[in-house]
């Protein structure tokens, strides 16, 4: 569906992305992960035919984004980082306008708008002015405009940005619902959103692609990830001695006979850790999955550094 080779984009002297190369297959849901300013939006703008690349080649469904942009535009639906909304229109009018703009016939427009509203949960606000909508609904309208013409490829730039936790869950469901009917490329810097909705990840840092694969593949490549948080009552030295065989241990807190530790080991090890702790005569107060595998991979790949926006 998408082939990217040597993609580079300069803004003046500054290279926003450099020599990106990846391929995305039909029907995949791909997470595009990176810190703010890593080059996600620039890449998606090139794929969305909004920006032209400085160098490199992007082919979408057999058509080049530079030499055959018109053909590419007929196959994509793009949600920029700021949803492109006309405040004075109602949701229904706006979606109908976008559908017509993207080649849906007048006869099919009503049905397509209805389907898009159904998928994104906008039915009840069809007649409302966009200017009166909450941020969550505006974001949904943004997604609806990207899919109203049933494009083969959906490019969503930070669809959950600025949403509250409940709206994030709802948006995640919307994106999950697109699986199978569209190829989806969704960017984010929010890790759970990516790990729960996407088949495969592309991790970009400072304009270059630093890793790609499924969460498991990345975990293997990076020598495993994840951690376990353990809280026990008992001797600190004993606790360390029991947990050492499972991996590196950091003591977070030790006071009043209670020791809190972080164990660098796969969360799958939790049952054995529990047995070992109890078997050693320590009282197990808490045993929990630590920061996610993806988070630890991501932090290692990006060295925990902030990049300039």
């Amino acid at each position: 569906m998408i082939q990217v080779e040597g993609l580079t984009k300069y803004y003046g002297e500054h290279a926003a992305i450099r020599d990106l190369a990846f391929t995305i297959g039909q029907g995949e849901v791909i997470g595009f992960l990176g810190l703010n300013g890593a080059g996600k939006s620039t890449t998606l703008k090139v794929l969305g035919c909004v920006l032209l690349p400085t160098a490199g080649r992007v082919v979408i469904d057999g058509h080049d984004v530079v030499s055959n942009a018109h053909e590419v535009r007929q196959r994509i639906g793009y949600l920029p980082d700021v949803p492109p909304l006309y405040e004075e229109m109602t949701v229904g009018e706006y979606l109908a306008y976008v559908a017509r703009l993207r080649g849906v016939t007048a006869r099919d427009t009503t049905a397509r708008v209805g389907e898009a509203e159904e998928k994104t949960g906008l039915r009840e606000v069809d007649g409302e002015l966009i200017s009166t909508l909450s941020h969550g609904y505006r974001q949904r309208v943004g997604v609806a405009q990207a899919l109203v013409h049933k494009p083969a490829l959906l490019i969503l730039d930070e669809p959950t940005s600025g949403l509250d936790p409940r709206q994030i869950v709802e948006m995640r469901d919307v994106i999950r619902g697109l699986k199978g009917t569209h190829t989806v490329l969704v960017s984010s810097h929010i890790l759970p959103e990516i790990s729960q909705t996407c088949d495969r990840l592309l991790i970009i840092h400072k304009g270059t692609l630093v890793a790609q694969g499924t969460e498991e593949e990345l975990g293997r490549k990076m020598g495993g990830g994840g951690s376990i948080e353990v809280e026990v009552r008992g001797d600190r030295a004993r606790a360390l001695e029991v947990l050492k065989p499972f991996g590196a241990v950091d003591v977070d807190r030790a006071a009043d006979g209670v020791v809190s530790l972080t164990l660098r080991a796969s969360p799958d090890e939790r049952p054995r850790v529990a047995q070992a702790v109890v078997g050693a005569g320590l009282e197990l107060l808490r045993l929990d999955q630590g920061a996610g595998q993806l988070e630890s991979i991501f932090l290692r790949l990006t060295h925990g550094q902030e990049v300039r926006a």
Binding site: K45, G48, C49, V50, H70, R73, Q74, I76, Y78, P80, V82, P83, P84, L85, Y86, E87, V98, L101, R102, G103, Q145
Partner: peptide, 12 residues
């Protein structure tokens, strides 16, 4: 208002 990308990404 950031609506230009809508026009740019449409087959126009």
């Amino acid at each position: 208002t950031g609506t230009l990308p809508l026009l740019y990404s449409s087959p126009l």
